[in-house]
Each structure stands twice: as C-alpha cells, then as structure tokens.
Amino acid sequence: MIKKKHTGVIFALIFLAGLFVLVKINNHQLSDANKSYCSLEHGQCEINQGEQSILLQIQPESIPLEEELSLTFTLPSGYNITRGWITGINMYMGKIPLIIESVDNNQTQAVTFLGSCSEPDMQWLMTLEVENTHRQQTDTLYFRFRTHR
C-alpha cells in the first residue's frame, strides 16, 4: 500500500517536471524571435537597434584559435556593454568571457581567446548585453561566426 502511494507521487513529480521543461522551452523559443542576430563575415558585422547601429570588427579577420582575438565595438551614444561571452554552437566549449580592455567615446575594445577542439569547423555564438541608457533597459545582441582549423 505504501509503495503505491510513493509510486503515484513519483509519477506526479515526473509529470510536473516534464511540464515545467516544456513551458521553459516554449518561452525560450518565443523570446528568441525578438533577438538581434548578425552573421560575422569578413571581419565585421553590424546590428541595427531601431535607428541606431552597433558595429563589431575583429582582428585578425581570419579568426585565430588559441591566440588573442581583438574585438572593437562601435556603439551609439547612450549604449554601454555590460558583459559578453562566446559559446560553441555545434560543440560545447563552455562560456568564454569577453575581457573589456578600454572604452573610448563610442568604441569599446575587448579581447578573448577561442580554444581549439576536435571539430574542424566550429560554429560560435557571441552574446553581448548592451545597456541602453536612453530607454533604461538592457538589450541582448548575438553575433554568429565560424572558425576553421
């Protein structure tokens, strides 16, 4: 009798956990529709934020692995980078931080290092949180790029 009670509770908990996961996945997919993406080609990429634009430039243009990668962000006035990181899309590589080195007028300099792995063609996603002081909110921007070894 006791085993039947516990079995029912366990199944109910599993059902609720599954329902919770489905709701989270659905909310994540809906929120993705409102995000700004940019595919990084030829060493630079531009994302429009309303009437403003944010430009990312990478040096060197051919993105190196296991070497310093320099990033220059040109932001409109009233925008500040609060944090950023890079993650692997087709292979888990952890959360690689962007190290902000300097901010001068509307340009922000950052560096990062990308690791090498067994995957010869890596797909990456750079996530950038940018504070918009005019609207008192944080926007999330995404830059996609590839590396080849």
Rank of each mutant, 00 (worst) to 15 (best):
I47P: 06
N48I: 09
N48F: 13
Q49K: 09
Q49V: 15
Q49M: 13
G50F: 10
E51R: 13
E51F: 11
E51L: 12
Q52W: 08
S53L: 11
I54Q: 06
I54N: 06
I54L: 14
L55S: 07
L55D: 03
L55F: 00
L55T: 03
L55G: 02
L55M: 06
L56R: 08
L56N: 04
Q57P: 00
Q57H: 04
Q57Y: 04
I58Y: 05
I58M: 05
Q59Y: 12
Q59E: 09
Q59V: 02
P60S: 06
P60F: 08
P60T: 02
P60V: 04
E61N: 08
E61M: 05
S62M: 05
S62E: 13
S62Q: 13
I63L: 11
I63E: 04
I63V: 10
P64N: 02
P64L: 04
L65S: 00
L65H: 00
L65T: 02
L65D: 00
L65V: 00
E67K: 11
E67P: 03
E67L: 01
E68N: 10
E68L: 03
E68R: 05
E68K: 08
L69A: 01
L69H: 00
L69K: 01
S70P: 00
S70M: 07
L71T: 02
L71R: 05
L71W: 04
T72G: 00
T72H: 06
T72M: 08
T72P: 01
F73E: 05
F73K: 04
F73P: 02
F73Q: 05
T74A: 09
T74D: 07
L75D: 03
L75Q: 03
L75V: 05
L75R: 02
L75A: 05
P76M: 08
S77Y: 14
S77C: 05
G78E: 07
G78T: 09
Y79I: 11
N80H: 12
N80V: 12
N80M: 12
I81E: 07
I81R: 06
I81D: 09
T82G: 11
T82Q: 14
T82C: 09
T82W: 11
R83C: 12
R83P: 01
G84C: 14
G84N: 14
W85T: 07
W85S: 14
W85A: 14
I86M: 15
I86V: 15
T87Y: 11
T87M: 13
T87W: 08
G88Q: 12
